[in-house]
Design a protein around this nucleic acid. Structure first.
Lengths: 242, 242
DNA sequence: CGAAGGGTTGAGGCGGTTCAAAGCCGGTGG
DNA sequence: CCACCGGCTTTGAACCGCCTCAACCCTTCG
């Protein structure tokens, strides 16, 4: 079945490699960051801790060492859009101007490496890594623009869940483990509000879509943020990407 | 009035400098590209010409020398999302994997510089420029995510139009030229379909919003793609950003 | 003049939001 | 151990903004 799907896929849907830099799993990884050098400092934030606010002077560049971070922007009336979700190995806080263009908050307890802008400029290794991360970041943002601009609520939630299923859904999709079973457990570490703000929806819509998927037996919920996908292939087809 | 608005602006709305790398004007600029070296080739595309398709092998990196280019992605059922609009000085076709993650089409007659990936790797100058462009690209994509995820149709169209008004709307907004008049003429060089696909709307909605703005005398239309903004400050307030 | 290809306008429907109420669950204190 | 509280989540009902579908208009070009 996955082979068949690959054959049918038009060029445009090939995996372009954007996922290779950043992990599928925001958590649980033991990433050995490129920034773990002398000149870098470390800092641990609790879950839902603020790393910096939009508009703060951009003095440091950060790398997620362990945990997960979201970047978001606010409109003056309080509307929020979460623009990126980052995991181990991802960089953030790389500024075009003098200040950060987004706020950064942790989702889970998170260890970050920090390095000053000046020191980052000086290191070729870091520059290289930065470029690589930026490129994959851009491609992820392209995907997210498609999601926000053109996908239905069901497709958005399905795409979101698929993000956290390892080795599935991309060009290199490994297909179901066995003939009879195609399950996977994903842990979100995000509140409904955070998910909604990432997907451009409301809390209620996210909740309704998840309930609907439960009703259709695509997923079951072990805890509120721990979801068992009963049929990965089925969920994948709900993303709109295939 | 503009000074007053700046004072009221919370930190979060400061211009973060994302616009500095790329021009406000996709057209009419005589940008002397960093790629205009020996090893680069040039190519001119007519308006609405295809530079490459999503999924094509990513052999070259491009720079817009003159004209404008849009990058878009398609879903298999034909839904399209334009993810970026580029002008002189902007780079595109920088791949994370082996293939392009978007398609690239010109909006107007466009001159591009091309350079092979290998040659790009070799030049520090190009690497530097590439990094700078990527960073501003990321910030523009952040803004666009907010637009797609959280803004109303009116706010989207207003934001879109403000993009093409020079020196207005950002942190460095110069304010109205005179006490009595606050006009500006923008030329879109895009069909309604392209605008709609960029803003995550339908043709009809774009058309209706523009008609509504005409009715409210915020804009007048000199030609279908040539719009006179009668009240820049007024339009700016419709963007939702202030 | 007629055809073709955008663009505009109108009517109706639907998906997602809004507002409101109830449910669930973990934590705290009696 | 259970009652209570607060925060998050779920569910329901009504509404509304944008989409869909269809007709019409305008401009361009043969």
């Amino acid at each position: 079945m996955p082979e068949e799907r690959i054959v049918r896929m038009p060029k445009a849907e090939f995996d372009t490699g954007a996922a290779r830099c950043r992990s599928n799993f925001p958590i649980e990884s033991e990433f050995k960051g490129i920034m773990s050098s002398d000149q870098s400092r470390h800092k641990t934030f609790p879950a839902h801790g603020v790393v910096f606010f939009e508009g703060d002077p951009a003095n440091n560049i950060y790398e997620v060492a362990d945990g997960s971070v979201m970047l978001y922007k606010l409109l003056p009336d309080g509307r929020r859009q979460v623009v990126e979700i980052l995991g181990p190995g991802d960089l953030f806080g790389v500024p075009a101007g003098e200040v950060y263009d987004t706020s950064a908050e942790t989702l889970t307890e998170t260890l970050v490496h920090m390095i000053s802008r000046k020191d980052a400029e000086g290191s070729d290794e870091i520059q290289q890594h930065m470029k690589k991360c930026l490129i994959s970041q851009v491609q992820n943002l392209h995907d997210h623009a498609v999601l926000l601009g053109r996908k239905s609520a069901h497709e958005r939630v399905a795409s979101f869940l698929m993000r956290f299923v390892p080795n599935r859904g991309g060009f290199a999709c490994s297909g179901p483990q066995s003939e009879t079973e195609d399950e996977s457990v994903v842990t979100l570490y995000m509140t409904r509000q955070e998910i909604a703000d990432y997907l451009g929806l409301t809390i209620e819509t996210v909740s309704r879509v998840l309930s609907d998927m439960k009703r259709r037996k695509v997923i079951t919920m072990e805890k509120q943020d721990r979801i068992r996908v009963m049929n990965v292939c089925g969920l994948c087809h709900l993303t709109g990407k295939f």
